[in-house]
């Protein structure tokens, strides 16, 4: 990033450590920038690719995942990361979230989860806690919060992790594992919004989360679901990781040649046309 880059984030924003987490993960994994494509939607989190030296597709609100799937299908050799916020991924893009998990493309999905809408100034997000008062939810949020971790496990995701942006070292390790994992990998990142979310602060996240230790059986789906459903004390780490299964780009196409390199087989087309003269 050039030194004169004008960062659009508020000083002290939880996005800064996430940016560092991704930089460190990519550099430690030694993935060259020209092999990484980041897809994002809209919102403060979605601006992350702007501040990285990678290819990026910064598309529309809620739509980070559809282009990510298509880019991976079109050129499977690229490392594709879709990154956006909780509103973008779980609200506006909810349907894509569900069906991307079902497809299982070999991409990493990093979701900045600060439980509030930042760029539109403080409304509830799908993950806001019940009772949180906002300029729209004036009497407090009445909806049940969306549970991305449980949803992803239920839909058959083979890698589901949750980290806290306040712990860069642990978060970076899990993001690395997610990138290396073959198949769709979700990393939900707890992150405070210091301007609009006075409820879920650095302190709150510290008090309401715990680290999974080595005794956690991350391949045990029902145990992982029990952990995912516990919203009182929320686990950090790889909550669920199952045996890899064939990823989407290996199922919908043959080989891994980038599509821009495949010329039209004029002979096959002429033959196909000829068939209509029968």
């Amino acid at each position: 990033m050039p030194a004169n880059t004008d960062m659009a984030w508020c000083p002290g924003c939880g996005n800064f450590p996430i940016l560092n987490i991704i930089k460190m993960a990519l550099s430690e994994l030694d993935i060259p920038p020209e092999e990484v494509v980041m897809c994002s939607g809209i919102g403060q989190a979605a601006k992350t690719p702007q501040y990285l030296r990678v290819h990026y597709f910064n598309g529309l609100h809620g739509r980070a995942l559809p282009p990510a799937i298509a880019i991976k299908n079109s050129n499977p050799s690229l490392t594709v990361i879709a990154e956006s916020g909780d509103g973008d991924t779980y609200g506006e893009g909810g349907n894509h979230f569900l069906h991307t998990i079902r497809r299982n493309p070999n991409i990493t999905n990093i979701v900045h989860n600060n439980m509030v809408y930042g760029l539109t100034k403080g409304q509830a997000s799908p993950t806001s806690e019940k009772g949180m008062k906002t300029p729209v939810q004036v009497d407090g949020v009445v909806l049940e919060p969306f549970n991305p971790v449980a949803t992803a496990i239920t839909l058959g995701a083979t890698f589901v992790g949750r980290v806290f942006s306040g712990d860069i070292l642990q978060a970076k390790e899990i993001v690395k594992q997610a990138i290396l994992h073959k198949g769709y990998a979700l990393v939900d990142v707890f992150q405070p919004c210091i301007v609009f979310n006075k409820q879920n602060t650095y302190q709150w996240f510290k008090e309401n989360t715990y680290y999974l230790d080595e005794t956690h059986e991350k391949g045990n789906r029902s145990k992982a679901l029990d952990i995912a459903f516990n919203m009182e004390k929320m686990a950090l780490g790889v909550i669920y990781q199952a045996a890899e299964k064939p990823s989407y780009e290996t199922l919908v196409r043959a080989g891994a040649e980038p599509l821009y390199k495949t010329p039209l087989d004029t002979g096959a087309l002429s033959q196909l046309i000829e068939g209509y003269s029968k």
Partner: peptide
């Protein structure tokens, strides 16, 4: 696609990647 919104956003992702 799961819906037409996904369809066209996928189409654009594919086009971006050279398809």
């Amino acid at each position: 696609a799961e819906d037409e919104i996904a369809a066209i956003n996928q189409g654009l992702g594919a086009g971006y990647a050279g398809a």
